[in-house]
């Protein structure tokens, strides 16, 4: 088990390395750098000026060197400009050149400096991640139990009216992307056109003071989309279990229907959806980007949009690393949970 987890972490690191290199490569393409120079420096810089600007700040070093500096395995770039300004990878405003460390990469715990937020990337990411984590927590609280209940209810009697109505509901929810359902919810529940002013159309206050009123809609929007999918998986798994021989055995033992569902079918039916729930995570992150932007909730997804829009290289990189870890970590949990639920693998 230990070895297994260790190996998984190895894979995670490797994936993170590859992915960040790709992101690094793309964000460091010349057109992007040019844009960066113009936003940071001066919009009306000539081509030569851009070139010097980039040159002076170490952006024209070979790609691998820059990547090494970001990782913290190569000493950071330093330069003193003609006007005496000290610049470099590790330079921070207000820090004297003597105090600037030699290495300042991820390995040193330095995630870099966000050019958009004018702040340390590490701090931004952890703050935004906290916000998103809070959002996701409530999404899960709402989504998982309702999806499982819907799936189990639909699957326990295949083809019944209950099954058909719940299945239709699930299909509609998965077929409606967040940007559609989100807009519809905002239109119906928050605007004066319909008149149901039940909820707030923005979740900005929810960051400091979350209430049902300002927080429920974003949670619901993300949860609904994932829910349909999990519910359908649960239903498929449940219908299969209900036709299994051992369910017939239980029936012919004289076990009553509710007991069959609760004691015999449930656990077996949950093995497959559990994996799915965990694998849903990456997709939920997707929804997070849309919903956070839509409801102006300043979380991880919102930060990603800001970073991408302004070519904030270091912030983008940090976000990719975190995403990779979130995705792979959920897969690890999914594997371990699968083993736990399935005694056939647990005890062999």
């Amino acid at each position: 088990m230990g070895l297994f987890i260790l190996r998984r972490f190895g894979v995670m690191l490797l994936t993170a390395l590859c992915l960040t290199f790709v992101v690094f490569f793309l964000t460091n393409l010349y057109p992007n750098l040019e844009k960066l120079a113009k936003t940071q420096g001066n919009q009306r810089m000539s081509d030569e000026q851009v070139e010097t600007w980039l040159e002076n700040r170490g952006y024209r070093q070979p790609m691998l060197v820059k990547y090494g500096q970001w990782l913290g395995v190569m000493p950071g770039f330093t330069n003193t400009l003609d006007d005496g300004q000290f610049v470099g990878t590790c330079a921070r405003p207000g820090v004297a050149p003597e105090d600037t460390p030699k290495f300042c990469g991820v390995l040193q715990g330095e995630w870099g400096y966000s050019t958009v937020f004018k702040d340390d990337v590490g701090g931004i990411v952890s703050k935004r991640l906290g916000n998103t984590g809070y959002l996701m927590f409530w999404v899960l609280v709402l989504m998982v139990p309702s999806a499982l209940i819907v799936g189990i209810l639909a699957g326990m009697r295949e083809g019944s009216v209950l099954d058909r109505s719940l299945s239709t509901f699930s299909i509609i929810t998965t077929a409606t992307p967040e940007y559609v359902s989100g807009v519809i919810f905002i239109a119906i529940f928050t605007s004066s056109t319909v008149g149901l002013k039940w909820f707030k159309g923005t979740a900005t206050q929810a960051m400091d003071n979350p209430t049902f009123e300002n927080f429920f809609l974003p949670v619901l929007t993300i949860a609904l989309y994932g829910m349909g999918y999990i519910a359908r998986m649960t239903r498929a798994s449940m219908t299969e279990v209900m036709t299994a021989q051992y369910i017939r055995t239980a029936r012919l033992k004289g076990v009553s229907f509710p007991t069959i569902v609760m004691k015999h079918a449930l656990r077996n039916a949950l093995i497959a959806p559990f994996t799915v729930i965990m694998l849903q995570f990456p997709w939920l992150l997707n929804g997070v980007v849309i919903v956070e932007t839509l409801f102006n909730y300043k979380g991880f997804g919102w930060a990603l949009v800001q970073a991408a829009g302004n070519n904030d290289i270091q912030l983008l990189l940090a976000i990719s690393v975190v995403s990779v870890f979130v995705v792979l970590l959920t897969q690890l949990i999914s594997d371990i949970g699968y083993v736990y639920l399935n005694p056939r693998i647990r005890i062999s």
Partner: peptide, 23 residues
């Protein structure tokens, strides 16, 4: 339900399939 498993019991072909794997 009272009769099944109590008065009449049935055994069928595949033993593995007739036992609940998670119980």
């Amino acid at each position: 339900r009272d009769i099944r498993g109590n008065e009449i019991a049935m055994i069928y072909q595949e033993p593995m399939a007739s036992l609940n794997p998670a119980m």
